[in-house]
């Protein structure tokens, strides 16, 4: 399988704080990669670097053929191929659910309004919210808003989806409904990188788990590695998580 994402010896600092210290990993097409680790281990920063929301200091990142480390990077072309869902949903509060979803296809892909509306209804049905198209975000629960955020990204038909702790702000019941949508996406063959604290979900859905510790990839393996950690840091992290 060709790699859709390739990080090679990536370094990133914020001032004197070195957050990524030579991070390298690949994600193959159709692969679901769960990035786990304690707060401050650099996992969210790595995800933001993949989408060029942060500029790296050194190393190479190639995403769907886009050289993200290149200063001449066409960011808009990259973002057409990569969808990202944030912890805080970041829906546009002045737009209805359908308008949130239609915005990028009409603005970026010059899609007609009727076609974009059909697409919005299609992706909303996929996340189980077809009846909420004309509601405003604030009229929805946190879980529903997060599913709309996923639908909004899906409307751009990305080749890769990034999920940045998307269930951290949700209670267990709402977490379940979001994870089900992500599981459906994974089963559909979508390439995904998810930064998550949901260990059970990572074990069940991820084809690869990456444990980050102190800005480095500390341990990598299939979901089963969570039951049998090879390093004491991962074992400690997992025991704290329980």
């Amino acid at each position: 399988m060709p790699a859709v994402v390739s990080l090679s010896n990536v370094h990133k600092s914020f001032g004197a704080l070195q957050v990524l210290k030579g991070v390298s990993f690949d994600v193959a097409a159709g692969e679901v990669v769960a990035v786990i680790g304690a707060s401050g281990s650099g996992k969210s920063t790595a995800l933001r670097c993949i989408n060029a929301l942060e500029t790296i200091d050194s190393g190479e990142i190639v995403v769907c053929g886009h050289k993200v480390h290149d200063p001449e990077l066409d960011r808009r072309a990259l973002r057409r191929d990569v969808g990202i869902v944030f912890q805080s949903y970041n829906l546009f509060p002045h737009l209805t659910v359908a308008q949130n979803i239609m915005l990028a296809p009409t603005c970026v892909k010059d899609m007609g309004k009727a076609e974009a509306r059909r697409l919005a209804e299609e992706v909303l049905a996929k996340v189980g919210l077809a009846e909420k198209a004309d509601n405003y975000p604030e009229q929805l629960s946190g879980g529903q808003q997060q599913r709309v955020a996923i639908a909004r990204s899906l409307a751009m038909q990305p080749k890769l989806m990034l999920f940045d702790e998307v269930t951290s702000a949700l209670d267990p019941q709402l977490t379940g409904e979001v994870l089900r949508v992500m599981e459906d996406l994974a089963r559909g063959g979508m390439s995904m990188i998810l930064v998550t604290h949901e260990m059970a979900f990572a074990r069940k859905v991820a084809s690869k788990v990456i444990f980050m510790h102190q800005g480095k990839v500390w341990e990598t393996g299939p979901g089963a590695m969570l039951a049998n950690p090879q390093t004491k840091e991962l074992a400690e992290f997992l025991s704290n998580d329980l």
Binding site: I84, N90, S153
Partner: peptide
């Protein structure tokens, strides 16, 4: 985050 979300949609 609203700027970022819009940026990530390639606007």
């Amino acid at each position: 985050t609203q700027w970022e979300a819009a940026e990530c949609l390639a606007l």
